[in-house]
Lab assay of single mutants.
Amino acid sequence: MTVLPKDIPGDSLKVTVGTANGKPGDTVTVPVTFADVAKMKNVGTCNFYLGYDASLLEVVSVDAGPIVKNAAVNFSSSASNGTISFLFLDNTITDELITADGVFANIKFKLKSVTAKTTTPVTFKDGGAFGDGTMSKIASVTKTNGSVTIDP
């Protein structure tokens, strides 16, 4: 049996954390987006972790974005102690894959008090994996961190 590389060099799934701005007490939304989904033969499963400074940001909610089908079954998240974990699994293993680019999740943060303008990162942590529509590992994932700026 011969195994051929399935990824064209330079191609990767792009996962990007967005940015937001606000004043202390505001609730802002930071999107997590996927790009080049079709090039990577869709997404059938993924789990990953984001870190944030809990002294500056309070997670209000984490909701599935419009590219997630049947989110009540296929999407899960949790947030505590400065870490947000995400889990997606197409429970049907074929019919509810992520097949389009767009917003995977929206994180709502309540901004805490600061004395001066502060930009705090929302960054990928170690761990996690992504699988394509056949549940094979997506070897190349380009992750881009985001941030939230609090301006009193």
Score class of each variant (00 low, 15 high):
residue 46 C to V: 00
residue 85 S to I: 01
residue 35 A to D: 06
residue 14 K to C: 15
residue 46 C to K: 00
residue 105 A to L: 04
residue 115 T to Q: 09
residue 86 F to D: 01
residue 79 A to W: 15
residue 134 T to W: 06
residue 26 D to H: 12
residue 34 F to I: 06
residue 140 S to W: 02
residue 132 D to W: 03
residue 1 M to L: 10
residue 106 N to H: 08
residue 121 P to C: 04
residue 3 V to T: 09
residue 73 V to T: 07
residue 11 D to V: 12
residue 34 F to S: 05
residue 74 N to D: 06
residue 131 G to E: 00
residue 20 A to R: 11
residue 49 Y to V: 03
residue 134 T to F: 06
residue 72 A to W: 11
residue 148 V to W: 02
residue 32 V to A: 10
residue 76 S to G: 14
residue 59 V to K: 08
residue 6 K to S: 13
residue 115 T to E: 06
residue 58 E to K: 10
residue 82 G to C: 15
residue 13 L to P: 07
residue 15 V to G: 09
residue 54 A to C: 08
residue 20 A to Y: 12
residue 146 G to F: 06
residue 103 V to P: 11
residue 55 S to E: 11
residue 74 N to K: 04
residue 29 T to K: 09
residue 111 L to W: 09
residue 48 F to N: 05
residue 31 P to K: 12
residue 20 A to N: 13
residue 143 K to D: 00
residue 7 D to T: 12
residue 136 S to F: 15
residue 32 V to N: 06
residue 94 T to D: 00
residue 48 F to A: 08
residue 43 V to D: 04
residue 27 T to V: 10
residue 98 I to Q: 02
residue 44 G to Q: 01
residue 76 S to I: 02
residue 66 P to N: 09
residue 96 E to Y: 02
residue 91 N to G: 01
residue 95 D to K: 02
residue 122 V to C: 06
residue 117 K to C: 05
residue 93 I to Q: 02
residue 58 E to W: 08
residue 93 I to Y: 01
residue 146 G to N: 06
residue 60 V to M: 09
residue 22 G to K: 10
residue 56 L to K: 05
residue 53 D to L: 09
residue 81 N to T: 15
residue 88 F to C: 06
residue 116 A to L: 05
residue 54 A to Q: 12
residue 141 V to N: 05
residue 80 S to A: 06
residue 76 S to L: 08
residue 63 D to P: 09
residue 17 V to C: 14
residue 146 G to R: 04
residue 25 G to A: 10
residue 66 P to Y: 14
residue 9 P to V: 10
residue 29 T to P: 12
residue 22 G to H: 13
residue 42 N to A: 14
residue 19 T to P: 11
residue 18 G to A: 12
residue 104 F to G: 00
residue 93 I to D: 00
residue 27 T to H: 12
residue 30 V to S: 09
residue 152 P to I: 11
residue 8 I to G: 15
residue 23 K to Q: 13
residue 47 N to R: 00
residue 73 V to G: 02
residue 100 A to V: 05
residue 33 T to H: 10
residue 67 I to A: 14
residue 32 V to I: 13
residue 42 N to G: 07
residue 31 P to F: 10
residue 127 G to Q: 04
residue 75 F to I: 02
residue 31 P to C: 11
residue 147 S to K: 05
residue 111 L to Q: 06
residue 25 G to R: 11
residue 141 V to F: 02
residue 67 I to C: 12
residue 148 V to C: 08
residue 11 D to H: 13
residue 40 M to P: 11
residue 38 A to R: 13
residue 96 E to A: 07
residue 114 V to P: 08
residue 128 G to Q: 02
residue 64 A to H: 09
residue 63 D to E: 09
residue 24 P to V: 11
residue 120 T to Q: 03
residue 112 K to W: 01
residue 95 D to T: 04
residue 132 D to N: 10
residue 58 E to G: 09
residue 10 G to N: 11
residue 147 S to E: 08
residue 144 T to C: 05
residue 51 G to H: 14
residue 83 T to V: 15
residue 128 G to K: 00
residue 36 D to K: 13
residue 131 G to R: 00
residue 103 V to N: 00
residue 52 Y to M: 08
residue 20 A to G: 09
residue 84 I to F: 05
residue 131 G to T: 01
residue 43 V to Q: 08
residue 29 T to Y: 11
residue 60 V to W: 12
residue 54 A to R: 13
residue 133 G to Y: 04
residue 48 F to Q: 02
residue 21 N to F: 08
residue 48 F to L: 07
residue 133 G to V: 03
residue 72 A to Q: 14
residue 20 A to V: 11
residue 40 M to Y: 09
residue 37 V to R: 07
residue 28 V to I: 13
residue 69 K to A: 11
residue 139 A to S: 05
residue 94 T to N: 01
residue 152 P to F: 15
residue 68 V to R: 02
residue 120 T to L: 04
residue 114 V to Q: 09
residue 38 A to P: 10
residue 19 T to R: 13
residue 88 F to V: 01
residue 72 A to G: 13
residue 150 I to M: 13
residue 149 T to P: 15
residue 13 L to G: 04
residue 88 F to W: 02
residue 133 G to R: 09
residue 145 N to F: 07
residue 84 I to P: 00
residue 114 V to L: 07
residue 128 G to T: 02
residue 45 T to D: 00
residue 47 N to W: 00
residue 16 T to D: 07
residue 94 T to V: 15
residue 75 F to W: 05
residue 36 D to E: 12
residue 57 L to C: 07
residue 96 E to H: 00
residue 85 S to R: 01
residue 101 D to M: 01
residue 49 Y to M: 01
residue 70 N to Q: 09
residue 109 F to C: 03
residue 15 V to S: 08
residue 36 D to V: 13
residue 3 V to L: 12
residue 77 S to G: 09
residue 128 G to D: 02
residue 51 G to E: 09
residue 130 F to Q: 01
residue 117 K to W: 01
residue 106 N to K: 07
